[in-house]
Each structure stands twice: as C-alpha cells, then as structure tokens.
Design a protein around this nucleic acid. Structure first.
Length: 321
DNA sequence: ATGGTTTTTACTGCGTC
DNA sequence: GACGCGGTAAAAACCAT
C-alpha cells in the first residue's frame, strides 16, 4: 500500500518539475525537446542537454480506476518500516552449498566467504542499523504481547526512526526509547492501552518508560491527545462478561458526559470503568466496583467519583432532552 | 521547583445477606 | 461476620508553569 502511494507522489513531482522548467534553452533561447530514448531534455538548436535522466520512475502503464490499477500493479513485498532495511535486502545463506544443495569447491568457497563478509558489513554496517534492528525487534515483541494492530507497530517504527535520526538516543537505552515510541504510537492512534500495560511488557522500569516517553514526545513535537474513553469499553466489557446492553448504555453515558465537558482532566480509563459500572446499575445487572476496578486497573474510589458524575450528567441531559 | 488537580491508599460506618 | 458501598483525609502522582 505504502509503496504505491509513494511512487505516485514521486512521479507526480517529477513530471511537474519537468513541465515547469523546460520550455526554453537557457543557453541559446531555442526550444527544448525530450529525447525519449536517452531520457534527456535537449535544446533543438544548440544541443545543450538541460536535464539528464528525466525518466519517469513511476509506473509505465496508466490505470483509469482502482480495479484496473490493482490488475496492472505488479506484486512484491510492500516495503515496511518494521524491518530495519525496509525489507528490501536479500540475505546470503551461510551454508557452503549452491542453490541445489551441492557443496562448493574450494575457490568458489573462498569467493563466497568474501561475499558474505561484504554482505554482513553492508547489512549491519554501522551502529545505527544495528541499533534500529534491535529496537524494531523490541517494538515488535512488545506490540505482539499487547496485541495491538499493525498500524500501531508501523507508527511506532516511524517514531523510533525519527528519534534515531534526530540523535535522541545517546545517553538513553534502546529499550527505553523503543517502549516510548510504542506508547507514543498507541496514544497517537488512540489505541486503548494504558501506560501500565505497556510498561508491563517492557524490559525497562516504569520510571524510565515515562521519562523516555516525555522526552520523545517533546523532542519530536508529537501531538498526543487523551484517548477516547469509549475505546476502552469493549475490552473491559468483554473481560467483565457483561451484556451488550450494558456496553451500549456505557457508551451513551460517555457520550452525554462528553457533551457536558465532564471529561476533561479525568483519566479515560477511570471514565470507561465508571461508565460500565453505572450502566450495569441502570440495567440491574450485577457488577461490583471491585470487579470493575480489577479489570480496568483503577481504584474503587475513582470509580465511585466518576460514576456519580456520569449519572448526574446523564440526568441533566435527560431532563433537557 | 511549584501549585493545582486527580488518583490512590487506608480507614470508618452503614446496611444486607 | 463478610461483603458491597459510600465517604473522608492524607499521601502520591500528574501536569503545566
């Protein structure tokens, strides 16, 4: 997916640039023409080559709708930020065998040794790539443990790359920044995972995760808003085993609460937990504060405070509506 | 660092099963 | 008596300044 959009952007840029600056020869004022065979733009008068390699790297075919594009686009692994080289490199096998499994003669063997050496040098040439390799592995591990969707992993990888490019790493641990990147991605995508959950799968302690997170957000000017409480509802509801009716009403409560700005400053998790508790009360479904507190990982006191507010807000809305 | 806000911890009293 | 619930006070954590 990303491959295709990137390619389109690039080809658009190219053709635009070509259109803009190639009408008149800067040397003699004669007209310019594109020599398609050599990919050059040259003056018809004096022969001056204005632009070399003006070959459009975009697709050589045209498509007039999405289905046709899908048919014409050629296959291949999409590049991904989750692999340190975007998944583009191939690897030379370590075995001294050819593709058919026959063992190699001594001279071929030596050549293979050298190829391997260079291959290795190329792939993990410097600190950065090795660093990236480890970090992305770490992100992938944590993301799997947390069961977050792919777009979150991709976002985390992008954030980490930026952190690396902006030299945010020196002095901090790879694990710390990896975890921070993942959590930042979670926040940016509004994925319902608390910082506690993230730290629980990280190799570094809570303190460092938080410090690294603040640092990364600040230095990269990341924009992170609070997560929508409703996004926690399905998960908590599932863990609690409540009816879908309760889940629905919990959502309603959160909606009306948001309309009345009861939201701001309060933790989304506490809100979601309280909404479920309140909804269960309204539906006469048995659900204790203790149970909710358990699955949502918030104190019962918080649930008490929040659910009162939610019910008040609902009442106000109910009266006026 | 500081101050304001929110959450947590710990404790208490009340009603019910 | 244990349990669920509600309230309170003080400590801790959080956030913007």
């Amino acid at each position: 997916m990303s491959t295709r959009t990137q390619e389109h952007e690039r080809s658009d840029e190219r053709s635009e640039r070509a259109r803009e600056e190639t009408d008149v020869c800067p040397e003699c004022g004669g007209s310019l023409a594109v020599d398609a065979e050599h990919g050059e733009t040259a003056c018809t008068e004096c022969g001056l080559v204005v632009e070399e390699d003006a070959i459009d790297p975009g697709p050589e075919w045209r498509a007039f709708d999405a289905a046709e594009r899908d048919r014409k686009a050629r296959v291949g692994a999409p590049t991904t930020n989750m692999m340190h080289d975007k998944g583009l490199s191939s690897v030379i096998d370590w075995k001294n065998e050819d593709a058919y499994g026959n063992s190699l003669g001594p001279e071929r063997r030596r050549r293979m040794e050298r190829l391997r050496t260079w291959d290795e040098r190329f792939r993990t040439r410097n600190h950065r790539e090795r660093n990236l390799k480890q970090a992305l592995g770490e992100i992938e591990r944590m993301a799997s443990a947390l069961d977050v969707p792919d777009d979150v992993r991709e976002t985390a990888a992008v954030i980490y790359r930026r952190a690396l490019e902006e030299d945010l790493l020196p002095g901090r641990s790879i694990e710390g920044i990896s975890t921070a990147s993942l959590y930042a991605a979670i926040r940016q995508t509004g994925t319902p995972r608390s910082i506690n959950e993230v730290t629980s799968v990280s190799r570094v302690d809570e303190q460092e995760v938080k410090r690294a997170y603040r640092y990364v957000v600040k230095e990269l000017n990341l924009e992170v808003g609070p997560t929508d409480p409703e996004r926690y509802v399905p998960r908590f509801a599932g863990d609690l085993g409540v009816s879908s009716e309760v889940e629905r009403r919990a959502r309603e409560l959160l909606d009306t609460a948001r309309d009345q700005a009861v939201h701001s400053g309060k933790s989304p998790i506490g809100l979601a937990a309280a909404a479920l508790y309140a909804a269960a009360q309204l539906t006469n479904e048995s659900l204790t504060q203790g149970e909710v507190s358990e699955v949502a990982d918030v104190s019962e006191v918080t649930i008490r405070n929040r659910y009162q507010e939610l019910l008040e807000a609902a009442e106000r809305a109910g009266v006026t509506a």
